[in-house]
Design a protein around this nucleic acid. Structure first.
Length: 217
DNA sequence: TAGTGAATTTGCGGATTCGC
DNA sequence: GCGAATCCGCAAATTCACTA
């Protein structure tokens, strides 16, 4: 049984948590659009955003979009992004450094190769019976979402987009970029499609995105 | 061409309502 | 009673159209 205080805190936390998730998911949004996404009035959304801003989790900037007063666009700060799971970052980076020290680049390549093979087997097991590319991409997106990548599938020109709003291995990938290239190859192998990266967190992007089109016959 | 005011759009803040 | 959310009126910032 929750106390009154806990109920009130939870109500507030739920609205704030949703705002953070929406900003993480969709990127910077003007107040009015964020209010629509939250199902609140502008004032209600602003109320929550001001609280989050006081905690240093979000920040606003004015953007001139045409006639009328400039829009106030809200986005996550570094502290806001840090709320998403990356707790093992330091450990992962240290492990990578130690493998490099003990076994050299060859050792790192072997570790990444084994990790990629493990992922390949897992994804192939889940996608095994699927023939349709759309179903494959959706299933892969669901698996990646479960792994903490906040992944989803969208229809794109001539194919599909696999979008990952969060990278739970960002620090490890920054320490060793072979993670990203092997990941790309795993996607190509399990989807049996032409996969290219269109957005990259490590390249300064807000998220990672992959364009997936059927192989030319 | 520059100045000015109307139009447009959004933000702000106080009062009020609602739910627990 | 308290905090969250809404309502409502006003202020602010910008563009656009008109006029001298």
């Amino acid at each position: 049984m929750l106390t009154k205080f806990e109920v009130e805190m939870n109500t507030s936390i739920i609205a704030n948590d949703r705002a953070i998730r929406i900003l993480k998911n969709k990127g910077a949004l003007p107040l009015t659009q964020l209010a629509r996404e939250l199902g609140l009035t502008n004032e209600g959304a602003r109320f929550n955003l001001i609280k989050l801003a006081k905690e240093g989790l979000v920040s606003a900037s004015a953007v001139v979009t045409g006639r009328g007063r400039p829009k106030q666009v809200w986005a996550l700060t570094g502290a806001g992004h840090a709320l998403f799971p990356d707790a093992h970052a330091e450990v992962a980076v240290k492990l990578i450094e130690q493998v490099k020290t003990l076994f050299g680049e060859e050792g790192i390549r072997a570790v990444i190769s084994a990790s990629a093979q493990d992922a390949r087997l897992r994804y192939q097991a889940a996608l095994g019976g699927l023939q349709d590319l759309e179903a494959k991409v959706k299933t892969l997106a669901a698996l990646r979402d479960q792994e903490g990548y906040m992944a989803r599938c969208e229809q794109a020109e001539q194919g599909y987009l696999l979008i990952e709003d969060h990278c739970p291995i960002c620090s490890a990938a920054a320490a060793c970029q072979n993670f990203c290239s092997s990941e790309l190859q795993v996607f190509r192998d399990v989807l049996q499609a032409d996969v290219s990266r269109t957005e990259h967190v490590l390249g300064g992007g807000r998220r990672c995105a992959y364009k997936i089109v059927p192989l030319k016959q």
